[in-house]
Amino acid sequence: MDFQIQYITPDIKLSTYDDKLFKTETVFEYHMLVWFISGETKIIQADKTYLFKAGDIFLIPRNHLATIINYPKDGLPHKAVVMHLTTEKLKHFYAAVELKHKTTGYDAKIYSFQSHPLLKSCLASLIPYFEVEGTFPEHIASLKITEAISILREIDPDVDFILADFEEPGKVDLIGFMEKNYMFNMPLERFGYLTGRSLSTFNRDFRKVFQTTPQRWLTQKRLELAYYHLKEKHKRPSDVFMEVGFEDLSHFSYAFKKQYGLVPSALN
């Protein structure tokens, strides 16, 4: 796998990926502003799937589960400029801003800005800094991040609901959360964190409400979802296994046959 990341600061990077695809399931610690130079990305959340192409600019909120699949496209690598909007920098920015509405308790979403000229100009201006040697001055990095936040707020004032919300995940209904997010192949520690629980409390509460272990329940639910996609949506096994939370096709095929007595391709 040819995967390269260049940093000009810990919060600003240029990622380049040149292979068939790169997939990860993650919860981002910070909001991420992304500008695609080339390639394609599919982002799968519990209730929506997004497809972004070269030129697109979008904002991924922190603390939300997502499956991200990156592809090279048209003979070009998957290449993107990424800016992390950290809690520290956002708190500093919003300390000087008077908000007119409550920001907590808002349902986060991925914000898409297509190829907005102001954002594109801001992010494209970073490219020369990746091409020169030496340390990128911290005060210039801070100015660039402040510029990006200011542009985001000018384009869509509702972005304050995301950027100015500094609350950490609280204890939530376990059944509702897991039924919505079981297809994300995350460590149990992350499931616990996002439901406001330690790992031990998560395991204890899970057994109490589901009457089984988390791993058994997750495998069962993912296989049921895969069966639906194969049987009703007529998808290919190679397209399904990643979307439902399996790491590789062979493990998925083995588990599917063990559960249903036939290989996934038999349903196509």
Rank of each mutant, 00 (worst) to 15 (best):
L59D: 02
A148N: 10
Y71K: 05
Q114I: 09
E168L: 14
A66S: 14
I68W: 10
D107R: 14
H78E: 10
N63W: 13
F58L: 01
D160I: 08
I155P: 03
F58K: 01
F166M: 09
F113N: 04
E138S: 02
T67I: 13
E131Y: 12
I68C: 07
S150H: 15
I110G: 03
I110N: 07
K109F: 00
A164S: 15
L90N: 03
T67V: 09
I162C: 13
H78F: 15
D74A: 13
L65V: 02
H64L: 15
S142L: 12
F166E: 11
T67A: 12
A148I: 10
N70D: 15
A96P: 05
R62I: 09
G170M: 14
L119S: 00
Y50R: 09
A148P: 01
R62E: 08
I60N: 06
H84R: 09
R153G: 12
F93L: 03
V97T: 05
P72E: 01
P137T: 05
Y50K: 09
S142F: 00
T67F: 12
I151Y: 06
V82P: 00
F93D: 00
Y106F: 13
E98S: 12
I140Y: 05
E138Q: 09
I149Q: 03
S121C: 11
Y111Q: 08
I155K: 11
E147I: 07
F130N: 00
I110L: 02
P157E: 01
P117S: 08
E154M: 03
D107M: 11
A80M: 03
E167I: 12
L51F: 06
L65P: 01
S121R: 10
L59K: 11
D74E: 13
E147C: 03
L126F: 11
L99K: 10
A66D: 09
I68Q: 07
F161L: 12
L85I: 12
C122H: 10
T86H: 14
K89T: 14
P117E: 04
D158R: 13
Q114Y: 04
T104D: 10
V97Y: 05
P61E: 10
A108D: 14
P157Q: 05
L118S: 10
E131V: 07
K91M: 12
K53I: 08
Y94K: 04
A54C: 02
